[in-house]
Nucleic acid binder design. Structure first.
Length: 744
DNA sequence: CTAGGGTTAG
């Protein structure tokens, strides 16, 4: 287990710093600077210890005390008790004894084991100023230390000082570069090694294959495997299982078959890792039959293979089968581990079974399996999807207690969860607290701001990201463009759209065009949006046409709406939403014949309008309300309250927007139909069951309609409530009669 | 080098 690194690590020595006289302090600081100059490795740690004179023990007979400490440090390191090894190292220094060439590798190894980068640097610094840093064992342990702490550049700097790097040092650095996804550097080092006449071994090859696989460079992994094979190396179980994983990700089924044949010939079939990798590969290639067959052919049941099977089923949309198989394994008394539970939770949250995911999370804790830093990011999307804030917060607490809150995956997932639960400030807090961030963390925060209509914030984050040196990817641009379109920043949107290919070499994809069509649509420039679609370098898809159609709905633009709808009816004939949108456009212009035609078209295909559905969490319980469904126990009160509000609204001069009802019915009936919209029912249910003034939060499966929007705006001021409504697109934050979306 | 499970957009 990795403990927390406290700095400076040797606290009693730090205290002694205060008793140092200024000249000594200066000389120590100079030595620290000498170290920085020598290695080009920055260190924030001051050398605040009164060092013994350099090289004092170098040529003399070993001091018995040094031997005593060294032996203990060595022993503890060997037993993987790194914490104790560090404690003893600290004691050794406090005795005024310096680390020598013999003990340094052990001390560094202990820092490596604990990922104590700052302490490791301090030790490196000490080694440097005392002149013990020319020993190849010291240097290679430093290479490993920097690699373990993800400081590959620093590792390389130390590597370059090795007089004759051996195959172990090369293997470590090669796999490090591969793991970081630095293909170019890996290849350069690979050639350099050949020029120096260092022969690779099986470990070196496997290191590169697993490394590339880890960083998502699957093709490179496969190429390395082939190269290894062609240079006459016999792949072992590790090579095979890593390459199978890469082959699966690339969906190179033929290659998968070949490797399958190879591993049978070489007798690697019974290897557990190989067998589960094989199941995993077939799962990724959508070969569920071969997958099950590989599972059935296993001689003994292995938990890894079971997990691979569950994941494979879920990957292919067979969540129910995955759940069934999982239950079976559990019933058979199989020892399910964290991976098993995490896999099934991931299957649920990735396939819309959010409630089940939450339930399984609870169940795993009941059976005594502790969630880890992978479980939490698998669970959090489920919380976000159904805005289950309490569950999300519980998971957050869990990661704080479990010491995994600094994990990037956990942090990014938390940002996303809080944003989807309407707590964008908490997203920002999580972001600010992250010790390390990656592309996904930045993107998640921008997406959060976009969802909340905070376009300026999203743009600021984008600029901050650039300044921090993080390169944006195509998702970053989707986030920033959708933020601009939500927030009405038309010029900024155009700027980023152009900058994307010009400055970053990222070619615009369909999603970017969809964002731009939205952006133009919002500004009322529908014709320009249409022109853009026509000039796109590839065939527009449903997203792009859908963006145009919904913009047409906002401005009730009939002719362009018809064009977009016609395309959509071909691209996705079974999506009722498109028919509804077109029919609403017609209805707004009282074109009842056309409305009727669209309705008939829909009916003839057996399509029905997706029922509007809203959720509201009241006192930890989630209530679901369906449009036009009167089954809720408090329905009478809801309708009463709604009527009362409607009266109040009319009194203050607001009238329901009849536009939004597409059927050709009597005026009064229209009003009745509008009353049934689920989001309004949910908001009123919230009003009835919570204390006055407390905020309400509703999520909806469709986009919010204009009438409900107006009514909720009214409620927010009349009842003095903050109301959050999340529709399919974004958040609407109603406060004092205004909405954060500024009525788009 | 030592499996298997992972976060973002639409």
């Amino acid at each position: 287990m990795h403990g927390k690194e406290v700095l400076p690590f040797f606290p009693h020595l730090r205290r002694s710093f205060f008793y140092l006289n200024p000249p000594t302090y200066l000389s120590l600081n100079r030595q620290r600077h000498a170290f920085i100059l020598k290695y080009g490795i920055s260190t924030a740690t001051n050398l605040t210890t009164n060092l013994p004179s350099p090289c004092a023990n170098h040529h003399s007979v070993p001091d018995p005390n040094v031997l005593y400490f060294s032996t203990r440090i060595y022993e503890f390191t060997k037993l993987n008790n790194f914490g104790q090894a560090i404690v003893i190292s600290s004691q050794m220094l406090s005795q005024g004894l310096m680390f020598d060439t013999h003990v340094l590798p052990s001390v560094i190894k202990a820092c490596t084991g604990l990922c104590f980068l700052k302490t490791g640097k301090l030790v490196h610094c000490l080694a440097s100023v005392s002149g013990f840093d020319s020993d190849s064992r010291v240097l290679s342990s430093l290479v490993h230390m920097y690699l373990k702490c993800n400081r590959i550049n620093d590792a390389h700097k130390v590597f370059d000082r090795l007089p004759q790097p051996d195959v172990v040092a090369y293997s470590a650095l090669l796999s490090g570069y591969a793991r970081m996804g630095r293909v170019k550097e890996t290849k350069e080092l690979f050639s350099k090694r050949r020029d120096e006449g260092v022969e690779l071994n099986l470990v070196s090859w496997n290191g590169m294959i697993t490394g590339f696989n880890h960083s998502g460079h699957h093709l490179e992994a496969v190429i390395m495997f082939q190269k290894m094979h062609s240079e006459g190396f016999k792949p072992d179980g590790t090579s095979i299982s890593s390459v199978l994983s890469a082959v699966g990700d690339l969906e190179m089924l033929n290659m998968g078959f070949q490797i399958h044949g190879y591993l049978i010939r070489k007798g690697l079939g019974p290897d557990k890792c190989v067998a589960s990798a094989l199941i995993d590969m077939y799962g990724k290639c959508a070969c569920t039959f071969e997958m099950s067959q590989a599972f059935d052919e296993m001689h003994q049941v292995d938990i890894g293979a079971c997990n691979a099977l569950v994941m494979g089923l879920s990957r292919n949309g067979l969540v129910d089968n995955a759940l069934k198989v999982f239950r079976q394994f559990k019933g058979q008394g199989m020892e399910l581990n964290v991976v098993s539970w995490t896999s099934i939770i991931a299957s649920c949250s990735q396939n819309g079974k959010d409630i089940e995911a939450l339930e399984l999370f609870r169940e795993m804790q009941v059976v005594g399996i502790k969630p880890n830093s992978v479980t939490i990011p698998c669970l959090l999307p489920a919380c976000g999807n159904i805005a289950a804030l309490m569950h999300g917060k519980a998971a957050h607490c869990f990661s704080l207690k479990g010491g995994i809150s600094s994990n990037v995956y956990v942090g990014s997932a938390l940002i996303d969860m809080y944003a989807k639960c309407g707590r964008i400030q908490l997203s920002r807090l999580c972001f600010d607290m992250m010790p390390t961030r990656n592309l996904v963390s930045w993107n998640a925060l921008m997406a959060g701001y976009a969802m909340h209509g905070k376009a300026n914030e999203a743009v600021n984050i984008f600029q901050w990201m650039q300044r921090s040196g993080q390169k944006p990817d195509f998702v970053s641009f989707i986030c920033v463009l959708s933020a601009c379109s939500q927030g009405g920043l038309t010029d900024e949107g155009w700027y980023y759209f152009h900058s994307m290919s010009k400055d970053y070499g990222i070619e615009a994809r369909l999603e970017h065009y969809a964002c731009m069509v939205n952006l133009l649509g919002r500004a009322g420039r529908l014709q320009e949006g249409y022109t853009m679609i026509q000039q796109m370098p590839f065939k527009p898809d449903a997203c792009v046409w859908g963006a145009l159609l919904s913009s047409c709905r906002v401005y009730n633009h009939v002719s362009l709406g018809e064009i977009a709808a016609k395309e959509l009816f071909e691209l996705e004939p079974r999506n009722p939403g498109n028919y509804i949108l077109l029919s609403n456009i017609y209805a707004s212009k009282a074109m009842w014949t056309e409305v009727h035609t669209v309705r008939t078209m829909m009916n003839s295909k057996g399509l029905r309008k997706n029922p509007g559905c809203s959720w509201i969490e009241i006192k930890g319980k989630v209530h679901m309300l369906l449009a036009g469904d009167n089954s809720h126990s408090q329905m009478t009160q809801i309708i009463e309250k709604l009527a009362e509000l409607s009266m109040e609204m009319k009194k203050s001069g607001c009238f329901p927007d009849i536009d939004f009802v597409f059927q050709d019915v009597e005026e009064q009936d229209k009003e009745q139909i509008l009353c049934g919209h689920s989001e309004k029912l949910a908001v009123v249910l919230g009003l009835l069951n919570t204390s006055p003034g407390s905020p309400l939060q509703v999520i909806k499966n469709l986009r919010i309609c204009g009438d409900c929007h107006a009514v909720i705006k009214f409620i927010s001021s009349f009842e003095k409530r903050e109301i959050f409504v999340r529709d399919t697109n974004r958040f609407h934050h109603f406060k004092d009669g205004v909405c954060s979306c500024r009525d788009y």
